[in-house]
């Protein structure tokens, strides 16, 4: 028997919503493992999980739920996350795929809310296009470490909520063709991608809160920014400045692009 009495103020129907709503999580390491953990604690019961990788020692500093034994056994990350959910939920429905997200596209289509915790601009572009095609609410998380002017590091996280009809990542200036071109030109030279477990935790928490807000309407008519940044240096979270120039409604995706790709024989 679930006891969610301490979160019942959110919405009396949240429990039922969490049973009906299918959530997908793409990428199960730094950001994704936090998201899965929180979703399971909240009480979500229907999951599609995907990640191509197995657990290694280097993941233990950021992947919630992973153990030394998982790293030594090279346990697939999807199995670690499935075990974590089953430890918190009595009867979850989990579709776990060890592979690239597109390999489980046919399962991901059924998700109503999709979380993406991926590393590349191209993957973000592809996942957002996928989400728009199937009218899925997409919540993307990520973090960056860059050199600051004072020689130190600037650690920042961000959450982007892409809803059908709302501003997309291109509208908001989060991704653009130059970034995609640069990424393609620099392919294979990405080096290590720094991750900080607590920054991942902050942005993952914001992403899950966003999803809970979608399901409960708790914040009512207060406009939530779709693009949120967290600056670890100043410990502040707020709307991304790019939002001030967002054009809405989105002109990048049209309703005619809905659904599976269409194949037409020539001639």
């Amino acid at each position: 028997m679930d006891d969610h009495s301490r979160q019942s103020f959110l919405n009396p129907q949240l429990d039922r919503a969490m049973k009906a709503c299918k959530v997908g999580v793409i990428g199960l390491s730094g950001g994704g493992s936090h998201i899965v953990t929180q979703l399971a604690h909240y009480g979500f019961d229907r999951y599609v999980l995907c990640d191509p990788k197995t657990t290694e020692r280097k993941h233990l500093h950021r992947m919630l739920g992973a153990t030394i034994a998982d790293a030594e056994a090279s346990a697939p990350k999807v199995e670690v996350m499935e075990r974590l959910i089953r430890g918190l939920r009595p009867h979850p429905e989990i579709q776990a795929f060890k592979g690239e997200w597109i390999s489980c596209a046919a399962a991901l289509k059924d998700c109503d809310v999709l979380f993406a915790a991926v590393d590349t601009v191209g993957a973000r572009r592809d996942i957002e296009q996928f989400a728009r095609k199937y009218a899925i609410a997409l919540i993307d998380v990520g973090m960056d470490v860059s050199r600051a002017n004072d020689g130190g590091y600037r650690v920042a996280g961000r959450v982007f909520a892409s809803l059908p009809g709302g501003p997309c990542m291109q509208c908001a200036g989060f991704i653009n063709n130059d970034m995609l071109a640069k990424e393609a030109a620099a392919y294979g030279m990405a080096g290590i991608r720094p991750q900080v477990v607590s920054v991942n935790g902050v942005v993952a928490s914001a992403a899950v809160l966003y999803a809970i807000d979608l399901l409960t309407g708790k914040t009512g008519k207060v406009a939530l920014p779709c693009f949120i940044t967290f600056d670890a240096g100043s410990m502040t979270m707020g709307p991304h400045p790019y939002l001030s120039v967002v054009t809405s409604p989105c002109e990048c995706f049209s309703s005619s692009e809905i659904g599976d790709a269409r194949f037409v024989p020539i001639g």
């Binding site: 129907q13 949240l14 809803l163 059908p164 979608l214 399901l215």
Partner: peptide
Amino acid sequence: VISVGRPMGIFSEGAIYG
């Protein structure tokens, strides 16, 4: 029937989720 936006709605005959 899933209405995707803010708030989201999840509905079936006789039940409202969320």
